[in-house]
Design a protein around this nucleic acid. Structure first.
Lengths: 143, 143
DNA sequence: ATTAAATAGTTCACCTTGTGAACTATATTA
DNA sequence: TAATATAGTTCACAAGGTGAACTATTTAAT
C-alpha cells in the first residue's frame, strides 16, 4: 500500500473521530462553555499552579491567546489568578471549586459515552492502539 | 488499567499529534492560506462537483460557515462556483487549476515529513493502527 | 392549478480563538 | 547601575463558528 493512501486514510479517520468527540463534548456540556475552554480547564486541574506560559506551550499558541481564554474563564468564575509573592511577574492559575465540579461532571458523562464505543474493542486492541498513538506523539514531539 | 486513564492518555496523545500535524502543515504552506482552508480544498478535490451542503456535512459545521469559507477561497481564485442548470438552487464547487497545483505541492511536502516519522514503525504496526482508528471512526459515525 | 412545505444557499449580527507588535512590570546579568 | 530578559496584558485585526431571517427554487398536497 502507498504511503499517500495510508496518510489519507489516517487523516480522514482521525478527523472523523476528532469531530465526533467534539460533538459529544458539546452535547454533554449543556452549560455555557466551549470545548476549548473545557480542555484548558482540564489541563489546569491536572497541572496545579501552572502559568499562562505553561498553557501556551501545552497548546502551542501565543501567550496573548491564553490571556484572552483565561479572562473568559475567570469571568465565569471557573478559574482564579494568584500572583507569586517571590517573583511578582508570575501569575499562577488554579481552577475554582465550581470549575472542578463542572469538569468532573462533564468528564463522567463523556467517559460513559466513550466507554460504550470502546466495548466494541478487545482490551489488547485498545492497548496496542494507544501505545502506537503515544509512540507517534513522542516521535513528533522530540522532533 | 482504568477506562478513565486510557481515555486521558488517548486525549493527550491525539491532541499532540493533531497539533503537530497542524504545525507542519502551517510550516509547509508558506503561502497565504490556513490549514482549515487546505482541508476544504483537499475535500473538494477528492469529491469533485460537491456542494456547500456536502462540505458542511463532512466537517460537521453549519452551511453559513461554509459560505464564508468558500468566499475566502473564491477570493483567492482557488475555487469556482457553478450553478446547476437543472436544479437552480444547487451550486457546485470545483477547485481551479491553481488550487489543484497548490494542494499537490503542499501535500507532497507534508507527506515527506510524515513519511519520515513513519520510518520508526513496522508496516504491521501502521496497518493495525489505522485499522483500529478506522474501526473507531466507523462505530462513532454509525452512532 | 394553486397553495404549502421543503431544500440550497446567502446574509447578518454576534461570539470565540488565534496572531503579532507594543506595552508594563519585575528580575537577572554584565 | 544600566542593559537585557522574562511574564503577562492590551490592542487591532482576521478566521472560523452559530443560528435566525432571508431569497430563490423545487416538490408535494389538496
Amino acid at each position: 500500500m502507498e504511503l499517500k493512501e495510508l496518510i489519507e486514510r489516517y487523516q480522514t479517520a482521525i478527523n472523523q473521530v476528532y469531530r465526533r468527540v467534539n460533538l459529544i463534548l458539546k452535547d454533554k456540556i449543556h452549560s455555557d462553555i466551549t470545548t476549548d475552554q473545557f480542555s484548558t480547564l482540564h489541563y489546569i486541574i491536572k497541572n496545579a499552579k501552572c502559568t499562562s506560559t505553561d498553557v501556551a506551550n501545552e497548546f502551542g499558541i501565543g501567550k496573548s491567546a491564553v490571556t484572552a481564554q483565561i479572562n473568559r474563564l475567570v469571568d465565569k468564575e471557573l478559574i482564579e489568578r494568584e500572583r507569586d509573592e517571590e517573583d511578582r511577574r508570575v501569575v499562577y492559575l488554579h481552577v475554582t471549586e465550581k470549575g472542578v465540579n463542572f469538569v468532573n461532571y462533564t468528564e463522567k458523562a463523556l467517559y460513559e459515552v466513550l466507554g460504550d464505543y470502546l466495548k466494541n474493542f478487545e482490551k489488547d486492541e485498545i492497548y496496542t492502539f494507544i501505545q502506537s498513538l503515544e509512540k507517534l506523539a513522542k516521535i513528533m514531539n522530540d522532533e
